[in-house]
Design a protein around this nucleic acid. Structure first.
Lengths: 332, 332
DNA sequence: TTGTAGGCGTTATCAC
DNA sequence: GTGATAACGCCTACAA
């Protein structure tokens, strides 16, 4: 039942000006007299005119759209929905939208990127879950396709735009916090070496422990990121000669597993203090609530979109990058 | 670095035909000779021609895009990322894409819907988290905007298109399963009345319990959906005169809370059997793993897109709906 | 079966 | 400051 589409021509007629003047009012206000601006604006209001996006995109050769590949299971884990919300929000504020797409296998993945760009469906991409030797960045650079990564590169640093959260700083904060609460035997529980971000988080723990003069012996545990493995690994550490009294974890999933693994004393209190990473919604609702290192996702998304827009505006410029600091959310 | 755009005209020249013939090869293959088809196809290949989406959208007055409002925290909980993946996947198979957008408050929410449609950015929407007296469906119907709901209406049933999963059937399955394992005192743990879907799930439990001739007394617990509240409620039920030996839960979040609340015996085994709902990834990794009722999200998404495409094709047709059966995933 | 002509709604260019 | 003209790339009549 949509009433007949109202176009820029309708506005022009009602305002008694040319289409071009209407366009100018919208896209180059400084070029037009205040008087006519008002007249055009009121015509726009009256007709409820909204510029057609396809026509505009066709004309300016841009889609004002950012592609995001959503795969399953995502490497972002339970961060994904919050990140997508933040990204969609930041994109909107910059006049962009986020378009989702999927691709099962690596072969179709690159075909999908290509297709979306060639058809003008998206202007570029946001990439997450950047692996140590991820082939995608170089591929995008070679093709001249704009993109920004959530996650810093481990190689070829400086060759493309990225935004990341300083995991090293986050776990160091967690150690400082636990030390201030009197802990000295503080374990780390996280991914096996090789993920990049996991290595950073473990490094932050190690660095802070050394800074406080604390021993690392028997204090590091790594395993796959699931609650079951994490619980088992926590139990193993607790069975050592000098069992930890606290755990710094690579993610909230590890942390929840650690909580399971610790068990509770007679009063129902966990037998070790656990600090998580990511501050997932579940963290606040555990009993007792879980302290966790929070990633500043809205700021991450803002910077990603900002870098993206700048790359579109000046594809030749040197790629920029942003490293943000996470913040410990203590809950005791 | 992008080489100059290759258009349909370039293909036509190389193939020695008119633009129209190229278009026909793409959009109406039966109208063209096999011989020329081959010639055109090879020209397309050689030039790596990809039709421009903006131009196409402008011409056919459609965006081939479905809008999805991603808000935070989402009502879908940890179902959201899996649902979005499935939706993006199904949409793609039908020649559509999913576009994300956000809107903070209710006022801007409707403005956002309007804007996206009026600018031709999307052809319609997929709505989730349908409340009992949700104002959105009627608003969309009134405006003639195509949409499909994930979640059945509680009023005005039949006035719009929806796809849902039969929660009643899911919890009944869970009860049957627990009965077959020898349980007779089976509690329900879920949302307070008023959510719609929560009511269905509780009703399924109640119905199955009656069918098996089991008592409901002291067996129903409701609370907010977080692990802490769920644990407390589970403990309260366990402290009753005839404590339950098993729990059927409204979601995995309730289930994980119930697991916490039950505690473990000397052997480390939970003191009650718990069945969750949604089959979130965490369920499989708990120790012991959690049985859970799985929503068939890929099928849900397929049907949603199917209904959406049909509404676009025939806006006047009577809205259809689909109710799918979930499936218990036993893990013992 | 294939080709010609025109327009979808917008913005860029260049006169006035 | 404002307006006429053209073009973005495609599809849909209609004509041949």
């Amino acid at each position: 039942m949509a009433r007949p589409t109202v176009t820029i021509a309708d506005v022009a007629v009602l305002a008694g000006v040319s289409r071009q003047t209407v366009s100018n009012v919208l896209n180059a206000p400084q070029r037009v007299t205040p008087a006519t601006t008002v007249r055009v604006q009121s015509a726009i209001q009256k007709l409820e005119y909204r510029p057609n996006r396809s026509a505009r995109n066709l004309r300016v050769r841009a889609s004002h759209t950012i592609g995001f590949r959503i795969n399953s299971p995502g490497g972002l884990g339970d961060l994904l929905d919050r990140f997508l919300h933040a990204l969609a929000n930041s994109a909107q504020a910059a006049g962009y939208h986020v378009l989702l797409f999927t691709s099962a296998d690596p072969q179709t993945e690159f075909a999908a990127y290509d297709d979306l760009v060639q058809t003008g469906t998206v202007d570029g991409f946001v990439l997450t879950d950047i692996g140590i030797a991820d082939p995608r960045p170089a591929w995008f650079v070679r093709r001249g396709i704009p993109f920004v990564c959530f996650g810093q590169p481990r190689r070829n640093r400086g060759e493309y735009a990225w935004v990341d959260v300083d995991g090293d700083h986050g776990t160091a904060q967690a150690v400082d916090y636990l030390v201030s609460r009197g802990h000295r035997r503080i374990a780390y529980l996280g991914w096996p070496p090789g993920t990049g971000y996991g290595d950073d988080r473990q490094a932050g723990w190690r660095r802070a422990m050394r800074r406080h003069g604390l021993s690392l012996t028997g204090m590091a545990g790594t395993c796959p990121q699931d609650a079951g493995s994490a619980a088992a690994t926590a139990r193993r550490l607790l069975a050592g000669k000098t069992p930890p009294t606290a755990f710094v974890c690579g993610s909230d999933t590890f942390a929840i597993g650690a909580r399971f693994g610790c068990g509770a004393d007679a009063a129902g209190q966990p037998r070790a203090t656990v600090v998580g990473f990511d501050d997932s919604p579940a963290a606040a609702f555990l009993t007792p609530p879980l302290s966790s290192v929070r990633q500043p996702l809205p700021a991450v998304a803002d910077h990603i979109v900002d870098l993206f827009v700048r790359r579109i505006a000046d594809p030749g410029a040197r790629p920029e990058s942003v490293l943000l600091r996470p913040e410990l959310v203590p809950r005791d």
